[in-house]
């Protein structure tokens, strides 16, 4: 029954409703994948806030989101851009809330400014070179040494993992980057399986524990698959994802880097413009559906 109600809601035109702008909202919501991302990331933040004891960080979240939005608005005014891009800024800020940790509000401000700033400054042929959140986190860590990534903060709650994956897959289907996420996860999973189960001989739950880590899945579904910063060509994208997975594995097991995947993506981001130069693909637009 639920389904029918929902379909009816989607087809608002079939109702003889007064043509008020708010009623056409559902159509817009589903035509832009960023709305999905906004909903998903906010719900993860709420989950963390209410169920994972993140309540003491509330001011940091407010600072991050506020600074990101203000920076975005200033930058858009500067370059006379599109004001609807606040959604992207909000998504980047939510990404920071979920992955970026520090105990100082000033570092939060710096992180948010770097994140949004990178979108306007570090561009190559209409694309960002770095995933903004990724760039913001890494550069803040390198500059201040006061920030960090907390890979253990999500725990291994299976229901949350399921929820995260479900939302993640939905969004990836929408932005047609599902293969990047799956190839990265698959490649990393294979290498870890070979190392921990086949070679070292740990029990299977050792492996399960590793792959139910919220941070890893969040990265796979929401960061490495950013349609604006991944290579444009599909095949190239898949090879690139494997490369990120290999680098993650090396950083994790040979250099004991925490949050290895985030670092790996940072280093692999340099490859994107080069790969795009040699292998052409379609440039991604958030409103692709609408344009068609």
């Amino acid at each position: 029954m639920w389904i029918f109600v929902f379909i009816d809601l989607l087809n608002t035109n079939s109702y003889n409703m007064p043509q008020i702008k708010t009623f056409s909202l559902p159509q817009n919501i589903f035509s832009d994948a960023r709305h999905f991302q906004l909903i998903a990331l906010s719900s993860f933040l709420l989950y963390g806030y209410f169920l994972l004891d993140w309540k003491t960080d509330i001011f940091k979240y407010i600072t991050l989101i506020f600074t990101a939005l203000v920076t975005q608005m200033i930058a858009v005014y500067w370059v006379k851009g599109d004001y609807s891009s606040w959604k992207s800024a909000f998504i980047s800020a939510l990404g920071l809330c979920l992955l970026f940790k520090t105990d100082s509000l000033w570092i939060c401000v710096l992180g948010a400014v770097l994140t949004i700033g990178s979108k306007f400054i570090l561009r190559y042929k209409g694309k960002h070179i770095f995933n903004p959140t990724n760039f913001g986190i890494i550069i803040t860590i390198l500059l201040t040494n006061e920030a960090y990534i907390s890979p253990g903060q999500w725990g291994n709650n299976l229901i949350f993992i399921g929820f995260l994956s479900l939302l993640g897959v939905q969004i990836l289907l929408k932005v047609s980057r599902i293969e990047t996420g799956l190839v990265f996860l698959g490649a990393f999973l294979l290498m870890e399986f070979a190392r921990n189960i086949l070679w070292l001989g740990w029990d299977f739950d050792f492996f399960i524990h590793q792959f139910t880590s919220g941070t890893l899945l969040l990265f796979s579904f929401f960061m490495i698959t950013d349609p604006v910063t991944t290579p444009s060509n599909r095949t190239v994208r898949m090879i690139w994802a494997v490369f990120v997975a290999v680098l993650t594995y090396i950083l994790l097991h040979f250099y004991f880097v925490n949050g290895a995947a985030v670092w790996a993506l940072f280093f692999c981001s340099f490859l994107t413009p080069i790969l795009d130069r040699f292998c052409k693909g379609d440039l991604f637009h958030w409103h692709a559906d609408l344009r068609r």
Binding site: K101, N145, A147, Y148, D203, D205
Partner: peptide, 11 residues
């Protein structure tokens, strides 16, 4: 299932 892995944070 895994040994305890730590990190030293700037917190």
């Amino acid at each position: 299932p895994q040994d305890l892995a730590f990190q030293e944070t700037p917190n």
